[in-house]
């Protein structure tokens, strides 16, 4: 049965693993150069300010490849679900070959167990290889962009660690399940894609923030950590950017009594925080003066941030992978039930 599974899986496996091998080759060739450039640049930059300028420039030079690689890693599970999962059983149903293979001296349950086992493992291996290669290649960039794109934030989280493996198992099981329900290859592929992308969006939006209770902290608003500053007529507000290396879920301003406030008193906007005159050379306006932040602190306004700190990365990775593993097993169980009872 393993032989038959591998034989039928040959072309699809060759396409995906071939693509990964090509990607791996490109990364293997370009990776050392990036690593060298980063480390020699760091060694040469000297002062702290120069170094932070260097890392920002270094990251900007490579950010499109960095982003593209993250997107590729994130799309591997989807590709597996659509091209490995959905057609797995629909192809048999459409060509009638399930009637041939289900009447060999092997039960349907065992047939499905081998198929799900072998290809499910291949799916997890493919995602694992992709994430391994991408993490290795992106190492210097991850370090350089530690402040701007911490690996715990949504886009990076799905392309690092072990969750891509969980996603791959889930996408594959989802594809097979949709396949046994819909029974036709093309609709099954389309539905699998839509559902999987929806899950990929829903997960960081609604579920991941609560997998582990987030932390809440209040921080003074300073010239270092302020984010958006809004000055609209009399309304004045300052957002804080949150904790470095963390995933900020929400940031708001609280007054001295800890109450959430939208706007700060207009006295600030008219006084120390009044916008500076446009700079003479036409460049972007400067931020508020230090006096503004001093005034804010004096009035007792602070930033309140709800966030997943950077050290929640691995616990969250394990929690999410565990969740997807459980979902995959549930879907696989359903496939067994449905294949035994409802397919013919």
């Amino acid at each position: 049965m393993i032989w038959l599974t591998l034989r039928q899986f040959r072309v699809q496996a060759a396409v995906v693993f071939g693509g990964l091998a090509a990607l791996g080759a490109v990364l293997a060739i370009t990776g050392p150069g990036i690593s060298d450039g980063y480390h020699s640049g760091l060694a040469a930059c000297g002062t702290r300010e120069n170094c932070s300028q260097f890392t920002a420039r270094f990251f900007n030079d490579h950010r499109s490849y960095f982003g593209a690689l993250a997107v590729i890693v994130m799309s591997v599970p989807g590709i597996i679900g659509v091209f490995w999962g959905a057609p797995l059983i629909t192809r048999e149903l459409e060509s009638g070959t399930h009637r041939l293979v289900w009447n060999q001296s092997i039960t349907r349950t065992r047939w499905l167990a081998v198929k799900l086992g072998v290809i499910g493992l291949a799916a997890m291996a493919a995602a694992g290889l992709a994430v391994l290669a991408a993490t290795w290649w992106s190492g210097p960039l991850d370090e350089a962009a530690h402040d701007r794109f911490p690996r715990i934030t949504p886009l990076m989280f799905d392309a690092r660690g072990i969750t891509p493996i969980g996603y791959a198992a889930f996408a594959f099981a989802l594809g097979v399940t949709v396949g046994v329900l819909v029974r036709r290859t093309l609709p099954a592929m389309a539905i699998t894609l839509v559902v999987f992308v929806a899950v990929q969006i829903a997960m960081p939006t609604w579920i991941r923030p609560h997998l582990i209770p987030p932390e809440t902290g209040t921080v003074p608003i300073t010239s270092e950590n302020h984010g958006d500053i809004l000055l609209n007529g009399d309304a004045f507000s300052v957002q804080v950017r949150g904790v470095p290396g963390a995933w900020t879920l929400s940031a708001e301003t609280v007054d001295a009594s800890g109450r959430t406030v939208g706007d700060m008193p207009t006295s600030l906007a008219a006084g120390p925080c009044a916008p500076p005159p446009p700079s003479a050379d036409g460049g972007p306006p400067m931020g508020p003066a230090q006096a503004c932040f001093d005034a804010i602190a004096e009035l007792g306004y602070r930033g309140k941030v709800v966030y997943q700190p950077g050290d929640h990365f691995w616990p969250l990775q394990w929690a999410e992978t565990g969740l997807f593993t459980a979902l995959s097993l549930g879907l696989a169980g359903f496939c067994f039930f449905w294949t035994r009872r409802r397919l013919s």
Binding site: G96, I106, T107
Partner: peptide, 20 residues
């Protein structure tokens, strides 16, 4: 189709003689 032994005892050539 209750198990491998039963499946082994019965050969089936399905409608439209499906093959891979």
């Amino acid at each position: 189709a209750s198990g491998p032994e039963q499946l082994a005892k019965v050969g089936y050539v399905a409608q439209d003689t499906p093959t891979y």
